[in-house]
């Protein structure tokens, strides 16, 4: 047997051609799906959609301004959310029970109420506090609480409650021995977090954070209810005037798809950056 020759009683078939399975089911499924897609495409093509309006409004100045607002609001609210999330996660993990309680209360409050309600509350803050500040240095709330600021605070603070749990998961994923090794070379808790724990937590944190980022792109559309001029709000303003509802909704949808498509590879770049020492991306 060690020679690799079969016993002479078996037929000599080693030189025959191997024929793989024919996956007839797959080909049938492809045919059905292609037919359905073609039908769907035709339905949209002959349906009551004036595609030339989609083209002409795609880069309309109001839509471009909306795109700009959606983008900066996404990054602004996420920046605020991540900053709050990190602080909250560190407080939650601290040995101080007061800080733990504050962190848990914050998460409870903002995860427990709908974002749209929070946006409306921020926007109508003037009804609770007509003026902000002290004496000479106070301002009328309605002058300060613009749709943009209300949206930034509403979306960012709400996001912080969710992000804190993502960051906390990342911190918990780092082995306890890493804290001890950091302490053993004389690091304080905060320095250990910054130099040792957070860089390792990033690997775990980035995929869900990328998710949250993409969620935020679309969440900004909620700010249309408080008159923030992001893409959806811009599209609505136009269709109120010209009644091309579907065409403008398609314009907005395409822009959201484009933003998300650009963000996804950025996430992969970040993941590669923080996979140092693990022998490649896993």
């Amino acid at each position: 047997m060690a020679q690799g020759r079969p016993p002479s009683t078996l037929p000599d078939i080693a030189h025959y051609t191997h024929v793989p399975n024919r996956h007839w089911g797959r080909w049938a499924a492809v045919a059905v799906i292609v037919l359905l897609l073609a039908g769907l495409a035709r339905a949209f093509a002959v349906g009551d959609i004036e595609w030339r309006f989609v083209g002409s409004f795609f880069t309309a100045p109001a839509i471009m301004a909306g795109l700009y607002n959606t983008l900066w609001m996404t990054f602004g609210a996420m920046a605020l959310g991540i900053a709050l999330g990190v602080v909250t996660a560190v407080m939650r993990m601290s040995p101080n029970p007061v800080l733990q309680g504050v962190a848990m209360g914050y998460t409870w409050l903002f995860r427990g109420t709908p974002v749209i309600l929070q946006l409306l509350l921020w926007f109508n803050l003037a009804l609770i506090f007509p003026r902000l500040g002290f004496g000479e240095f106070s301002v009328r709330t309605v002058d300060v609480m613009t749709p943009a600021l209300a949206a930034l605070l509403g979306l960012g603070i709400n996001q912080g409650a969710y992000t804190s749990e993502v960051i906390r998961a990342g911190m918990l994923s780092v082995d306890a021995g890493q804290y001890e090794a950091a302490k053993a070379i004389g690091m304080t808790r905060l320095r250990a977090l910054r130099r040792i724990i957070f860089p390792q937590a990033m690997k775990v944190v980035i995929p869900p954070l990328g998710n949250e980022f993409i969620g935020m792109v679309k969440l900004t559309s909620l700010a249309s209810v408080i008159q923030f001029a992001e893409i959806l709000h811009a599209a609505q303003n136009i269709y109120y005037a010209n009644s091309r509802v579907i065409e403008l909704l398609i314009v907005a949808a395409l822009w959201y798809l484009i933003i998300v498509s650009v963000l996804t590879p950025l996430q992969m770049l970040l993941e590669r950056r923080f996979a140092r020492g693990t022998g490649g991306t896993r």
Partner: peptide
């Protein structure tokens, strides 16, 4: 330490 505890990202 028993389990070395080197910083894996360095």
């Amino acid at each position: 330490f028993q389990r070395f505890n080197l910083f894996p990202h360095m």
